[in-house]
Each structure stands twice: as structure tokens, then as C-alpha cells.
Design a protein around this nucleic acid. Sequence first.
DNA 1: TCAGGGTCTGACCGATCGGTCAGGCATGCT
DNA 2: AGCATGCCTGACCGATCGGTCAGACCCTGA
Lengths: 195, 195
Amino acid sequence: MSRAVPDTHGEILAAAARRFAVAGYGGTSLQDIAREVGCSKATVLYHFANKEALLAELMAPAITVLQDLDDQLTGLTGTAAQKAAAAGFVDLAVRFRREIALLRGEFPVLLCQPAFAHIQQISERLRDAFAGHSDRPGARITALVLLAGISEACAEFVDIPDDELRPALLALVLRALEPVDAPLPQPPTTEDKEL
Amino acid sequence: MSRAVPDTHGEILAAAARRFAVAGYGGTSLQDIAREVGCSKATVLYHFANKEALLAELMAPAITVLQDLDDQLTGLTGTAAQKAAAAGFVDLAVRFRREIALLRGEFPVLLCQPAFAHIQQISERLRDAFAGHSDRPGARITALVLLAGISEACAEFVDIPDDELRPALLALVLRALEPVDAPLPQPPTTEDKEL
DNA sequence: TCAGGGTCTGACCGATCGGTCAGGCATGCT
DNA sequence: AGCATGCCTGACCGATCGGTCAGACCCTGA
């Protein structure tokens, strides 16, 4: 049988995920992680170049999916962009809520680090899509409220099953989003804008 | 005239607010604050018992208003609780968005400290009021998304004037809240249906 | 039997943190 | 002049942080 192959690497990863979720990235020391695994801090740093590399490996799957979503949103405008962004982000947030919980408000600090710089750009494009690429303050405010709120809710409601959380969030978003390209009483004359 | 009365206490307070807003509470050292004021770290600790006391004095006005809001919400139920909580919290968040920005995701950590323990209870009651005191998952999820989203938005949009931010947030909240005690399909008068 | 590579560790490093303390300095009252 | 008081500081403290390093302990293949 598969008798106790150590897999220290994986154990460290799992322990780090648990600690980060409780105390955040900044609030968790390498010593904490080592203690949880039952090894020395030096062992943690033998398996991972540094603390940031640990976080990066933990976040990698979520980041990949986030980039895919970003690709899918390119070219979409108006309500189409809003709906696609809403469905895509809600699904992503629900699936990776453990990863979102890891960062718990440390987004602003972590995104400043060069290793995560491109994430910031993606999140700005995502917010823009949520606003239907409108620059109306109402649309921009709504987009930010929803994106931040969804992240927080997913990090908080770890006990609710995906199939319950996802539709509830999606319904909320569709209810709350400002329609962006349909407030005009007579729209046909404005389509030359696209050309 | 009032010629250069030092008011070091106030200067430290202002400098701390500026630094906390940029780097967060945990990310700001007493040394940083002292450097910004142009005094020594020991001077900061001469005017304030410790770092936490500095934060407490900075947050005091906002906390007072939060407690007032909490009082006003006691006894309200259903949609009345939702609307009162929405109006009250949006107003509070807009007015004190600088204070909210100070904490930037450090709520979970700071609320664990005994000095801020009662804030956690208030915020839970507030969330409950947002949900119209319903325990439907949809209502609870919506409440959390909106509360967290509003906080984040207020911390982010420091450049938008109050009079623009407040109505936009209020409209969003009223649009997004699940009605909780009005699931009736037909209003009392059926003839206004034509309108 | 021995060499070598993968794994792991205790000891240690420099930096930084919040906080303490004795004392310097200016001012104003007696 | 002498003294008390309020304000401020440099030097220092113990703790903790992320990270380094030489070496010990396996296991395996020659």
C-alpha cells in the first residue's frame, strides 16, 4: 500500500493554506506553518524558495482561471460584458473561495509586489467589464461594491455548498447591476459610435 | 496671534491617519509615523500609551456613530429594518470613509482584540438588520455582500464627493436588497396594474 | 563498503517591531 | 536664584520576522 510517503511539500502547502485562512498571509509566520506541519522552519524554506513562493503556488490555479476569464471578456461591451463578467466571476469566486479567503484584505498590499502586478491589471479590467465599460460613476461604484462584496462573502461563507452560494450570488448581481446600454429612449441613431 | 502652538498630539494623529490609509494599521510602524511628523518614536509613545490607543482615538468618532445607528435599529424588523440599516450605514460609511480605509481588510484581525470586541457584535446585528432579520441564505448572503462592498467602495472612492457617492450607494442597496416581508404578488389595489 | 544525493535540522544572522527609561531642555512660578 | 513641570529624545530592551548555512541523517546504486 501507499505507506506514509512523506510528501512534505504537500503537507507544507496544506498547512500554509490553513494558517493563511485563519490569520492572513502577513499574520502567518514561517514558524507557524512549520509548527503546524511538525517540522522546522528551515524545512519549509528547503521546499519553497521563500514565503512569497509558497503563496504563489497556493494561488496558481485560481490565477490561471482568472486569466482565462480575462481572455473571455476581451471584446465584449455593454450588457454582454456585464453578464459574462458576472457569471464568470461568481463562478470563479465560489470555486476558489478558499484561495480568496487566504488574502483577506491583503490584496492591496500583495498586489503591489511585482510578482502579482499583472493581477492588478486583470482585476481592473474585470471591474471595467462589471461596469459595462461605462464611466458613469453609478456603474463604477456598483461594480466595485459587487466585486469586493462577492469576494468577502465567498471568503466568509465557507460552509455553504457551491450549488447554493453560486445562484444566490448570481441573482444578487443581476438584480444589482445597473443596465448600461438600454437607458436610451431612442437608440438607433447612436450606433455610428462603434464605427 | 496663534503663533505655532506645536499641537504635537494632533500632528501625530493626522500623520497616523495618513500612513494607516496608505499601508494599513499593521503595515505602519511607529517609526513611520514619527518620521512623517518629524519627531522621535519615543515622542509618539509619550502622547499615546501605545499603538492601539492611537488607532482607538482615530476611530472614536466613527465608533460613536456606529453605536448610535445600532441603537436606532433595535426593535425594527423586516423591510423597515432593512431600509433603516441601509440608509444609516451608507451615510455612516460615506461620512467616515477615511476611517474605514484605515482598517482596509484588517477588520478580522483587529476585531479579535478585546478593545474592539463589541464592534464585532454591532456589525453582526447590522448584518442581521440588512437581511431583514431573515435567516434565508439569500438574504444573509446579500447582506454580507452589500456591507463588505460598501465599505470597500467607500475606502476606494476617496475622490468622489459625498453628495455623489451617497445616493449612488443607496440606490444600489435598495435595488439589490431582497424584499423580505413583501412576497405578495398582488398589491391591495389591483387597478393600478395598468400603470 | 563507500560515495553521493535528497531531506531535514539547529544555530545563527541582520532587520524591524512595539515599548521602556533616564535624562536634557525650555518655561514659568515662587 | 531655585525649583517643578511638561515636552521631547537617544539609547536600549526583548521578541519576532524572513532567510542562510554547515552539517547530520537517511537511502540507494556501484
